[in-house]
Nucleic acid binder design. Structure first.
Lengths: 348, 348
DNA sequence: CGGTTTGTTGTAAACGTTTCCAGCTGCTGG
DNA sequence: CCAGCAGCTGGAAACGTTTACAACAAACCG
């Protein structure tokens, strides 16, 4: 037998002396005579029968599996998403397939195309960048997709986005309110959507606060602890009194570099991060950070996807794509306590 | 059509004017006449054909999917494992199914049983506790399983374990060498395997160092940042000069509680953690920690599983179960710098 | 008591592949 | 000129389910 000796509906039928149709019916809780049910149940139990999910999937065209593709499972932001998604999908009876794209665009496209192989019923994709090929692949996707990230208008796909413009602005405004006037910015790569948006938020907030934009106070680097430390070295000559970092890892690296130089946080320089990951709480002093709602976004994305799946084959035409934005939330901790000589302005 | 309008091998056959058998052969790179190949290839491309993985799985009895079940994806240790496993499986052409058991034993058993549904070709299980039911389920599992954790002898299953006894001992010995004499211990639940082993390592090392075992210096709690902070409050009256924590999260919570009370680290009290997660590096001062090799274990487990999968149906009898132990590694950071008055013994 | 209903059952088709087998074509070698 | 052979090809079975359909028995009603 090509099967691993695994019992099937056929073996049960033989043992119980009924047809495979009856076995299937009994096992799926449909009507049958008293003793038929009894016999089938017992045979199944004795053989230790477990229905073959693959065969079932083939029959009814669904796998009860969902795929989540993100750039890097090492990043706490994505871990938070995985966690939230997993909670939702598990409750709904779906399994979760994890795919790490290593932030490679081709990999993201491959995942999108592989939706066609019917391995999973739907996909949550977290692209690092959106190219024309992405848009093309998204519009022609073989199954429901939800994108976590910002999509251009007109792409017929549900999406969940973070408001990192507003989030950055909140952080900068907070630093300003607590008396900081030379607010430096350590950003990630500016050619990614998040990088661009955070930059936008930073500039907007500076203007709103009436502060000048000083190029010497801005560093672009990649996301990572070491990069944060390196950036500090470049920024210190510009004499900042606050550091806003596009990410907690950068903030942490920066904070360590400062402390190692004897700079006091927050007395000399305030430090704020972004994402409010476990690292922010873990740092010393604990880091003020902007929570962009990774958990919320993950949960919301999963809900949208499940919703698509359920309203499938309903009235015919699919409902229009929905976009949901998770509001940012500023979490103030010790790393941005006001300077003693600051005007503790509570007004906007 | 019950299918979503998705092209199949049949549509290609029709369009190319050949039989489905020929399509299958061409697509699988078997011999065919020049123009048959040509026609099939073109038809497939024009229709945007993607092979249905479910049908294929049903046919040849393998899904090219692997399952990893762990207690909590929020824990950095498991994230490290996921990452390592993902890297290996991806390279081997397998997808990774993630399952979070929330540390619930029934959930672990359910995963084990669900191996029979043929959803995945193999399972890596990270159980929090091993009950008799686990052993029963493991021995009768419907497919290859690798356990990350310690298994009693005689269970016919590959396993990868951490040497947390030795790891704990290393940490305690290190603290002793750097001049500490009242070494407190914040442990996780003692009824889990890791909890028990860490306790064992702690006691063994104390004895080896000639230090007395003082109950007032030991706290059992659950793994979590807040628990670490709470434990410190209970320990301080016992006047420890070092804190060994069963996990980085505990260590971090403890460190924060100490710093908040004005206790200096490492001058007044040294702090060491375990797991060497990102948190250890992130803390201030950076935390000494024992790396139990989460990555290594994950990678090794994946390799063992893949190996089982390949040597399947070979000579007949399966090779005996293998057990691999990841050696612990002490990572010394600032949080355990020697006290100034310490005998900086480098011997042993 | 015959016709209709109701409930239970079995046969067979279908899902989309892969693959065994047999048949066909066109050669080659005798 | 024909046997044999190689290369291609198509038909059909198989993987393990679910389910439409038909068959059949028993029970009911008039």
């Amino acid at each position: 037998m090509p099967n691993g000796g695994q019992p099937t509906i056929v073996s049960i039928a033989a043992r119980a002396g009924v047809s495979i149709a009856s076995v299937s019916r009994v096992l799926n809780g449909q009507g049958a005579r008293r003793d038929t049910v009894e016999r089938v149940r017992r045979a199944a139990a004795e053989l230790g029968y477990v229905p073959n999910a693959v065969a079932r999937s083939l029959k009814d065209g669904r796998t009860r599996q969902l795929t989540f593709a993100m750039p890097d499972i090492g990043n706490p932001v994505y871990v938070a998403m995985v966690r939230a998604i997993q909670a939702v999908t598990k409750a709904a009876g779906y399994r979760l397939l994890l795919h790490s794209t290593d932030a490679v665009a081709e990999d993201e496209l491959a995942v999108l195309h592989s939706l066609g192989d019917r391995t999973s019923d739907g996909l949550i994709l977290c692209p690092i960048r959106i190219t024309d090929e992405h848009i093309e692949a998204l519009t022609t996707a073989a199954g429901p997709v939800v994108v976590i990230g910002s999509l251009p208008d007109g792409v017929p796909v549900d999406s969940v986005r973070a408001d990192s413009v507003a989030g950055s602005a909140m952080a900068v405004a907070h630093l300003f309110r607590t008396g900081r006037r030379r607010i430096a910015f350590i950003n990630g790569p500016s050619d990614t959507v998040p990088g661009h948006n955070r930059d936008l938020g930073y500039r907007t907030a500076l203007t709103a606060c009436g502060l000048p934009h000083d190029e010497a106070l801005v560093v672009h680097t990649d996301f990572g602890i070491d990069s944060g430390a390196a950036a500090v070295r470049r920024l210190l000559p510009a004499r900042p009194d606050a550091l806003f970092c596009a990410n907690d890892q950068l903030a942490l690296g920066a904070a360590h570099a400062l402390l190692a130089r004897g700079v006091r946080i927050p007395e000399d320089i305030a430090v704020a991060g972004m994402d409010d990951s476990a690292l922010a709480q873990a740092g010393w002093p604990p880091l003020t950070s902007v929570d962009l709602g990774s958990s919320t976004r993950g949960r919301r994305a999963a809900e949208l996807l499940l919703d698509r799946l359920e309203t499938r084959g309903g009235t015919g035409t699919a409902p229009p794509p929905r976009t949901s934005t998770a509001p940012p939330r500023l979490v103030v901790r010790a790393s941005t306590a006001p300077t003693t000589d600051s005007p503790i302005t509570r007004t906007a």
